[in-house]
Design a protein around this nucleic acid. Sequence first.
DNA 1: TCTATCATGTAACCAGTTACATGATTTT
DNA 2: AAAATCATGTAACTGGTTACATGATAGA
Lengths: 201, 201
Amino acid sequence: MAGKRKVANLLGLAVLSYLSQQPMHPYALARVLREHGDDRSIKFSHGSLYMVVGQLVRAGFVAGQETGRAGQRPEHTVYALTPAGRAELGDWLRELVEEPRHEYPAFVSALSLITALPPAEAVELLRARLRLLAGARADVAAIIEDSRAREVPGLFLIEEEYRLDQLDTEIAFVERLISRISDPAPEWAGGWAEYHESRQN
Amino acid sequence: MAGKRKVANLLGLAVLSYLSQQPMHPYALARVLREHGDDRSIKFSHGSLYMVVGQLVRAGFVAGQETGRAGQRPEHTVYALTPAGRAELGDWLRELVEEPRHEYPAFVSALSLITALPPAEAVELLRARLRLLAGARADVAAIIEDSRAREVPGLFLIEEEYRLDQLDTEIAFVERLISRISDPAPEWAGGWAEYHESRQN
DNA sequence: TCTATCATGTAACCAGTTACATGATTTT
DNA sequence: AAAATCATGTAACTGGTTACATGATAGA
């Protein structure tokens, strides 16, 4: 739909979304992003936030309004969404919800190169991964339970539920992979073990 | 384990891996990466390949050997793995296989902000996504079947099988999400529809 | 003869990360 | 009195993308 966004960083989308609720200064944006746990879904740091706000201003999606001051604290610019910014927010979100993107998770890269490791070692590492995955799963489950206990509507937990589903799928995949490597059909493994035996690393 | 890699781009890992088989010049690397379908697992372009080879040289992981010349074609430098490069390859791969990383897929960001869209529109977009996901799934399945027909060992298809599993999980998740939005429990939706009705966008 | 593929690189630009730098206010 | 948090930003560096620039060889 849109060829290329003037601002590509997804942090910019989050900023547009929060500014559509009410004008804010950057520090307040950082605070609400963290409070809502959006830092788990969208990567950001102090530096990247100021950078992306600058990009949004240059693109005409947000504009600095008043320059506030509370007590002797430093001056701060409050930013508000422009009409173009509101349009961009809608268009961008629609694109992300509708169109799956080809992505490059690190584990996919690792899988595509795993034959560079001897199979016995791969199995050991995959078992270790399984333990770490269990930990990650427990963390996500705890976040969900905690929110439910605080009566947060389920709607605001869908991204964590999505993660949970993907984690469960990965766990099942890794378990199956371990058993396929441990007890390999010859036409499946294609000489993996033999290759590493002949040049003992 | 490793604090921070001198070369962080995963394309660098793929380069180390192929150079561990035999020395090659950059163009040959690009060719084998594409032939093996690694461009589906690791993002790269002509430019980033030359860049990453430069980084690997500076880091001491690969070194230019001979400067070959075939016929009147331009000179080309053949790169080979150094001992440090072989160590880095092993260490890096082990880390990637063992340690899950927190990642930021675009759809997770979209889910965390989806309430900025009216629910009826969200459902429409998710239905469209479902059709596109079916297409993506068919593509992956075709790649797997095609490789099997050519008797490629299953081991070399694990990254595509992983993708297939994740796609199936996403499809099931989106189907369930559509039905939850379409027929919402009030404590789940938390006034989503009402919010958008009161300010008809 | 022209197009695709083989083959090499550089330069300019933009984005993102990290560290630097400052100072007020609130809480312990 | 000290530490944490509120609040702002800039500067330097590094990495990645895109476009520019060149030319040989092989096949249609």
